[in-house]
Simulated assay, not measured.
Amino acid sequence: MLRNGLEPWHLLIVAVVFLLLFGTRKLPDTARALGKSMRILKSEAKAMKGESGTPGPVGGPAAEPTAQEPPPAAG
């Protein structure tokens, strides 16, 4: 009976239930909000994983590029 888990007709039933519950107007907004929440969760998990005990940006020690002066011209 349940040897493969979800079959295509199960997914169809779930899609119809979502359409009936949320309607066609709220479904895109709900999906957008869910995607935004997932992005926030992913970035926070990455920040926690990259945290090494020192405060600072997640990207590395140099958060802002430093301005370098060009070498003096010979002449």
Score class of each variant (00 low, 15 high):
residue 1 M to T: 11
residue 1 M to C: 07
residue 1 M to I: 01
residue 2 L to A: 07
residue 2 L to M: 06
residue 4 N to Y: 13
residue 5 G to M: 06
residue 5 G to T: 04
residue 6 L to W: 13
residue 7 E to W: 04
residue 7 E to T: 05
residue 7 E to F: 13
residue 7 E to I: 12
residue 8 P to F: 09
residue 8 P to Q: 00
residue 9 W to S: 01
residue 10 H to N: 04
residue 11 L to H: 07
residue 11 L to P: 00
residue 11 L to E: 12
residue 11 L to M: 08
residue 12 L to S: 10
residue 12 L to Q: 13
residue 12 L to Y: 13
residue 12 L to V: 10
residue 12 L to D: 12
residue 12 L to A: 12
residue 14 V to F: 11
residue 15 A to Q: 09
residue 15 A to S: 07
residue 16 V to N: 04
residue 18 F to K: 04
residue 19 L to M: 12
residue 20 L to H: 02
residue 20 L to T: 04
residue 21 L to S: 02
residue 21 L to P: 00
residue 23 G to S: 04
residue 24 T to P: 10
residue 24 T to Q: 15
residue 24 T to K: 11
residue 25 R to A: 10
residue 25 R to S: 09
residue 25 R to L: 04
residue 26 K to Y: 12
residue 26 K to N: 14
residue 26 K to Q: 09
residue 26 K to F: 08
residue 26 K to I: 05
residue 27 L to E: 02
residue 29 D to S: 09
residue 32 R to P: 09
residue 33 A to T: 15
residue 34 L to E: 11
residue 34 L to V: 12
residue 34 L to A: 12
residue 35 G to I: 10
residue 35 G to V: 04
residue 36 K to C: 15
residue 36 K to L: 15
residue 36 K to P: 08
residue 36 K to W: 15
residue 37 S to H: 11
residue 37 S to C: 14
residue 38 M to A: 13
residue 40 I to V: 10
residue 41 L to K: 14
residue 41 L to F: 15
residue 42 K to T: 10
residue 42 K to I: 12
residue 43 S to K: 15
residue 44 E to P: 06
residue 44 E to K: 15
residue 45 A to V: 08
residue 46 K to F: 13
residue 48 M to D: 06
residue 48 M to H: 11
residue 48 M to I: 04
residue 51 E to A: 10
residue 53 G to P: 06
residue 53 G to S: 00
residue 54 T to Q: 01
residue 55 P to N: 03
residue 56 G to N: 01
residue 56 G to M: 00
residue 57 P to Q: 03
residue 57 P to H: 03
residue 58 V to R: 03
residue 59 G to I: 07
residue 59 G to Y: 05
residue 59 G to C: 11
residue 60 G to P: 08
residue 60 G to T: 02
residue 61 P to T: 08
residue 61 P to K: 01
residue 62 A to M: 07
residue 63 A to Q: 01
residue 64 E to K: 14
residue 65 P to A: 00
residue 65 P to H: 02
residue 66 T to H: 13
residue 66 T to L: 05
residue 67 A to D: 14
residue 69 E to L: 12
residue 71 P to N: 05
residue 71 P to A: 11
residue 71 P to T: 03
residue 72 P to T: 02
residue 72 P to A: 00
residue 72 P to C: 07
residue 72 P to V: 02
residue 74 A to N: 06
residue 75 G to R: 06
